[in-house]
């Protein structure tokens, strides 16, 4: 029978949970190998960052939804962490194949990369749970009035939208199990960033544009047709 919005949301939540059951809360053996292959092993920083970002997330989730729902926040964060490690491994495998490189020291020691990747994983989890709030239906334990939808996660992690934007396409490429609705949601996040958020005063986009401008035009403008 055709699915009601609630049934569809419940199914995608169940699918996400089943899907991530096999993924661990810690870096996998393959990830540990990538970390060891780095000039500077990022393992300790990765685990410390996860710990500190988890505290931030729990606190803000509790503030937004209510202190009695901190357990819900922990559930969501756990799913987010599993997806974060899984997508990271998948990304590194494809980069290894594309670049014939095993040492990803610079990337894996880049805090912005990790924070953006975790934020994107959490946004997928929140969108999967929060789907009902867009339909205004109370089915995931969170009242529709609490808006945890994008760009809430950027504010929690104090992450620049432009940095979040950088991981979206690679995230979708690396995680074939994403549902059509979630891919569409991430695409909407891209539009939202490019149309407005990335142009806010404190965005790193301006610095990038300034650098590009100083470097001068890379390509000559095409001559006008006579």
């Amino acid at each position: 029978p055709p699915q009601t919005p609630v049934r569809a949301a419940m199914n995608s939540i169940a699918q996400l949970r089943v899907d991530l059951t096999a993924s661990g809360d810690q870096p996998s053996a393959n990830l540990a190998v990538y970390f060891k292959n780095c000039t500077v092993d990022p393992t300790k920083e990765v685990l410390q960052r996860v710990e500190s970002l988890s505290q931030l997330f729990f606190q803000r989730f509790g503030q937004a939804v209510g202190p009695r729902c901190v357990g819900l926040g922990k559930q969501r964060f756990t799913l987010g962490i599993r997806l974060y490690y899984r997508v990271m491994e998948s990304m590194l495998k494809s980069e290894e194949k594309r670049l014939s490189v095993q040492n990803f020291s610079k990337l894996l020691n880049d805090s912005t990369f990790h924070t953006s990747l975790l934020a994107c994983a959490l946004e997928v989890v929140m969108a999967t749970y929060g789907g009902s709030s867009t339909t205004g239906v109370y089915s995931n334990g969170v009242s529709p009035e609490t808006d945890l939808s994008f760009p809430w996660i950027l504010d929690v992690f104090q992450l620049a939208a432009f940095d979040f934007y950088k991981v979206i396409e690679s995230f979708i490429k690396a995680e074939p199990n994403l549902t059509k609705d979630i891919v569409k949601h991430l695409e909407r996040c891209e539009y939202q960033i490019m149309e407005s958020i990335a142009w806010r005063g404190d965005s790193p986009l301006f610095e990038l544009l300034r650098q590009t401008h100083e470097d001068g035009p890379v390509e000559q403008a095409e001559p006008t047709a006579t």
């Binding site: 980069e95 990337l107 950088k166 396409e169 979708i172 059509k180 569409k184 695409e187």
Partner: peptide, 21 residues
């Protein structure tokens, strides 16, 4: 099953986007 518009070129990936190439 989705119709996401991939925009990165073959020679571009997450390493380039984070200036780690």
């Amino acid at each position: 099953s989705h119709d996401y518009h991939f925009g990165l070129e073959d020679h571009e990936g997450i390493s380039e986007l984070f200036d780690c190439d």
